[in-house]
Nucleic acid binder design. Structure first.
Lengths: 215, 215
DNA sequence: CCTACCGATCGGTAGG
DNA sequence: CCTACCGATCGGTAGG
């Protein structure tokens, strides 16, 4: 450990990241100033810059930490070697639980990743694609043929839509918890899988035109 | 029509709102400057302020126009007096089509409504609640008893999650169009409705605690 | 006295 | 880890 780095440094830095994630989630990355972050942490702005190089790094750390935990979750569940349906159910439950514990970071990931510099952004998006691929594979194993119809990834995205959207309407003091909703999401998704049929795919990039007079 | 107001005024104003919606969707409301809006419209900033009072009004108009169209859609579908399942299917299809034609406005609605002044924000959120209520009612008619289990609104939110999330992953040049995904969403949702059971509800507002050592 | 703008700059505040 | 600042840019408006 480098001489001169206080034992509290890492603790303080994590507290700062957590506070910043809260503020970014509330007001957005562009709508939050470094002054506000410093004030919320109870430190001066120069003190804040002792822990982070710049505003971008603050965002990159929050988002990287979160997406890394998601990848770790996928690995943990895969290590359990469950049967297809149990595997996908576990994935859903673990992700919903993770989102419940990291609502701020998760909103920042979904809304503010666009403000990252190209290199960091690509790294995060690559990790997100690996997570989506893991869900798509799990879906293919539950519903063989989905991949052949190129439906496994769209289905994975519909599933992510349900659970990513939960942070917009589930209130901590409401009648339902994230944990209570996880089996609802799973039941809905598994029940629906059997009913889904392959849709028509666009043969060529179509030209968008204004609609004619008759609707 | 007021004397002296150019016939092009309304046309120009609508073009400005459309451009601003595009920019806000790309960079966020707080991340977009009035200079950028003016430049994208090919006019000077003072000219921009000839059409809108301030930046807030720009946001309020975009979001109000969009949410008004959603309410109008609900009314149109209700006027068709369809059977329960056909009714909900039509709602899904019309909303997905509307989102496809107004992707920018829709993203602004979902992400930037928090930047509106209190009064405008409450007006928009009230309209959104009416739209959600219409979907929840439609769900209750398809699956009687959902409302008794207080599940009709959570189910409506899961449905909105699937279709609201589509703008994050559906590419205009991709293999699937919004229109092609609408029946997939509907099939998945209807197929799943039968499998959903009432979850356990939180008896009291629970206190959030750090997890103990054993997971 | 109206509209539809222009070039220039206002008072404040951003990130650093 | 503080006060004191910077170059630039913010949302909004002056006179003509």
């Amino acid at each position: 450990m480098p001489r001169g780095r206080a034992a509290t440094y890492d603790t303080q830095r994590e507290a700062i990241l957590a506070q910043a994630a809260l503020l970014f989630a509330q007001r957005g990355y562009a709508g939050t100033s470094m002054n506000e972050v410093a004030e919320a942490c109870g430190i001066s702005k120069p003190a804040l810059y002792h822990y982070v190089r710049d505003k971008d790094e603050l965002l990159a750390e929050i988002v990287n930490d979160h997406v890394s935990r998601l990848e770790a979750l996928v690995a943990e569940v895969q290590a359990e070697r469950l049967a297809p349906e149990a595997h996908l159910r576990r994935l859903i439950r673990r992700f919903v639980e993770q989102y419940a514990d990291a609502q701020a970071s998760h909103r920042v990931l979904t809304e503010d990743v666009r403000f990252l510099p190209e290199a960091d952004r690509e790294q995060v998006l690559a990790a997100q694609r690996r997570v989506v691929a893991a869900f798509a594979d799990a879906i293919e194993r539950v519903k063989p043929g989905a991949a052949a119809a190129k439906l496994h990834k769209p289905l994975a995205m519909l599933l992510f839509g349900m659970i990513n959207w939960m942070f917009t309407w589930l209130r901590p003091d409401g009648p339902f918890t994230h944990e209570a909703m996880a089996p609802v999401v799973a039941d809905l998704f598994f029940g629906g899988l059997g009913a889904v049929q392959a849709p028509q795919r666009a043969p060529k990039p179509r030209r968008r035109q204004p609609a004619p007079l008759s609707s």
